[in-house]
């Protein structure tokens, strides 16, 4: 074994952080680029389903909180594209891969936000699931990714509270509002659980990612934590978890659920969900419409830099 590999192994072994200038196995780098760029794209594509209600937010407060939240997601996208850059891939390349369908984003954002209650459900469930995953990733072995997660987690917990606040308003509001809240929970419950990815037994990348400490806890482990936490929150709201088989197992201390619809999950991942085409087209359109603006900024910078020189 060469000395570079030995140094890398020692960093992982001792739970230290791998930094951009450290030697790392090519596969470690590739795995991280895939995961970090997918994470960055998720933040940015995730702006769309929430942006769908931004102009229709029902109070000045709701409008400002939602806009600030979506702005945070854009900021998270920025950190994460920067993390990917430290691994040797530019933002332009990363975006190109997204547009070509080579890079994925979290499948949850391919579901539509049909009512205002969905904005509550997205904050409560989708951000709630994301936090559990991201808290775990604060201990990931790649330094820049780990530090980005620390900052992102602080903002995400505010997002989840924003979502839960909307759910409270809806669930304790008029009968129509409560109905919207239940409907949102019905539609987002299972897709949120599937955000944690396939069961451990079926997870392709799990073994090596865990060994490299990129991933610190397994999909099923994180998912269970989310379920256990969320059931009580739904009870407080007086809403029903849309799973007739949901039950608390006294022995394990955990909730058990029905099997998930993995056929739907994989079909949406493959591009056949309700909004896959719409989301990608929106991103491409904004990017293409902005091309002349980026060119103008670059041309102006070149002209004024020459003047100074």
């Amino acid at each position: 074994m060469d000395k570079f590999q030995e140094a890398f192994d020692e960093i992982i072994e001792k739970d230290l952080k791998v930094e951009p200038r450290d030697w790392m196995p090519e596969e470690y780098r590739k795995t991280l680029i895939r995961q970090v760029s997918q994470h960055a794209h998720s933040e940015v594509i995730g702006m769309q389903p929430e942006g769908n209600w931004l102009l229709r937010a029902p109070s000045l407060r709701a409008k400002q909180v939602l806009l600030a939240k979506i702005q945070d997601e854009a900021g998270h996208g920025l950190y994460l594209y920067s993390v990917a850059e430290t691994l040797g891939i530019s933002r332009a390349e990363t975006i190109e891969q997204l547009h070509q369908g080579k890079a994925k984003y979290s499948s949850i954002f391919n579901y539509p936000t049909l009512t205002w209650a969905d904005i509550g459900a997205v904050g409560w469930l989708v951000d709630g699931a994301a936090i559990i995953n991201q808290v775990s990733l604060q201990r990931t072995s790649y330094g820049p990714y780990s530090r980005a997660m620390v900052k992102i987690c602080k903002e995400e917990s505010f997002h989840q509270r924003q979502g839960y606040e909307i759910m409270c308003q809806m669930a304790f509001g008029t009968p129509e509002q409560k109905e919207m809240a239940q409907d949102a929970l019905n539609r987002f419950w299972e897709p949120s659980l599937m955000m944690f990815g396939p069961h451990d037994a079926d997870s392709v990348h799990k073994g090596q990612s865990m060994a490299w400490k990129i991933k610190r806890e397994s999909n099923d482990h994180l998912r269970q934590r989310f379920i256990d936490r969320t059931v009580a929150q739904a009870e407080y709201l007086g809403l029903t978890i849309p799973d007739p088989n949901l039950k608390f197992n006294e022995e394990t201390g955990h909730y058990e659920t029905s099997p998930f619809n993995w056929d739907e999950f994989w079909n949406v991942v493959k591009g056949n969900g309700p909004c896959n085409t719409q989301r990608l087209d929106h991103h491409k359109r904004a990017h293409e419409n902005g091309a002349w603006v980026r060119e103008a900024a670059a041309a102006y910078a070149a002209k004024t830099e020459n003047k100074v020189a």
Binding site: K63, G75, A286, G290
Partner: peptide, 14 residues
């Protein structure tokens, strides 16, 4: 607010 998610690049969107 209509610019949100429609900006020419991420920094400008923000």
């Amino acid at each position: 607010a209509e610019l949100c998610s429609n900006g020419p690049f991420l920094e400008e969107d923000i």
